[in-house]
Nucleic acid binder design. Sequence first.
DNA 1: CGCCACTTTGAAACAGTTCAACGTCAGTGG
DNA 2: CCACTGACGTTGAACTGTTTCAAAGTGGCG
Lengths: 243, 243
Amino acid sequence: MDDHRLFHLFRRLDIRDTLSADEKQALAEAAGNTVQYSAGSDMSSEGDSPDRSQLLIGGMAARYNRVESGDRQITAFHIAGDFVDLHGFLLARLDHGVSAVTDVTVVEFPHVNLTAVTERFPHLTRLLWLSTLLDGAIHRQWLVAMGRLSALSHMAHLFCEHYLRADTVALAAGMSFPFNITQEQLADALGLSTVHVNRTIQELRRLGLISWDGRTVTIHDWERLQQVGQFDPTFLDLTRSPR
Amino acid sequence: MDDHRLFHLFRRLDIRDTLSADEKQALAEAAGNTVQYSAGSDMSSEGDSPDRSQLLIGGMAARYNRVESGDRQITAFHIAGDFVDLHGFLLARLDHGVSAVTDVTVVEFPHVNLTAVTERFPHLTRLLWLSTLLDGAIHRQWLVAMGRLSALSHMAHLFCEHYLRADTVALAAGMSFPFNITQEQLADALGLSTVHVNRTIQELRRLGLISWDGRTVTIHDWERLQQVGQFDPTFLDLTRSPR
DNA sequence: CGCCACTTTGAAACAGTTCAACGTCAGTGG
DNA sequence: CCACTGACGTTGAACTGTTTCAAAGTGGCG
């Protein structure tokens, strides 16, 4: 009955609005296969026209674009409960690749099923729409951080964001959350060189704000980390209200 | 019958899919007041919880965020046919301000009317959703350009994007389009200083790629401008297909 | 005509990059 | 069980794209 694969998704939506039992069931019925990807593999490629969207239920994924120099820019990180490409439901072609940062498990949602959901469940449709709007809000914060904050602030901002997002889907433990990526991948997300990312992490550590062993980030001073990152959680829209 | 105020919106949607007469009428009925803002004024402020969304039908608007240093980052420019804050329909609070770059005219869509549309017109709902997804796709390209392209490429990319967007809503004339903003505003969008924006424009002019008198941009070499900006129009999703 | 906002220029300073080398550690195979 | 490997992290030093500061030029408008 209850599709445990959707636990994190339900949690993420439940925090913003109330899902009815019917709606939960409709989502469960729209869900298709479970698929695994191993770390480093591509889950979608730029230019694909997928006929299904992928809900991440375990591990971490990144959307990225490549530029001519060979450099890569990561435009989003995804954790359990996130659709990595729900926008692919309505966009004809994917404008980015998606890669598995760690080993990853996804549940596929065929677009025909999503269309059926939108035909019968307007409120649920609005919640799925909301889900993509949250992605957009995060993009905007990344733009602000990239354009107008120092490397140190930008990185602090990213850690704040990820702590709250992990916490929302019950992946945080105390002030720690899984962040199993390389410094190179972090550099690609921040738009910095790996060398500078390394130095910036050291600075955050030296300031006593965080520690990170490559797998788990622990925040030692949440208040000051937010200050350094000029972080205001409003954009994550973490309040329950009817949509 | 036919609400001429929605001309640019219909055009923008029509390019991606087919709108039925019923759907057009539903949108026309959902439309409310026409409102004007003069250049420089704020159309919404960060933290607002608006009860309506604003469809731009004339002029140019920008979404922006401020950081502690007082610097501003513009995260989107909007022209006729764009909703400047359709995401505000489902997001509880606006995570940015919206300012009128030029004198601006908008049509307000009360959120109650939008909710009613989503309850009765699933396909039209998907098109409105698509509209916000296009914003997201543009955000992603801005992130890539900001993180991994030079100032020159970034600026070239922006001009390519705006030319095509203007063309879609019949605002381009030949290879020219209205771009009535200051270099400071452009700097805030590119995440650069005004001084460097000035020098970068001069470089684009010197290369014979564009001219710009502060009001209208003319592209002199579309091919090379795209090359310099590493511009691929895929992300604008300019093909008609059922959604 | 004169003002004010905007653009342009030059020079010094700086944040972040690049290049090249070295350190570390987990996994692998002999 | 230990030497080897390869990926990842760390360090130093030179370099560069962009910023900052300060001043001068331009032009539309009241």
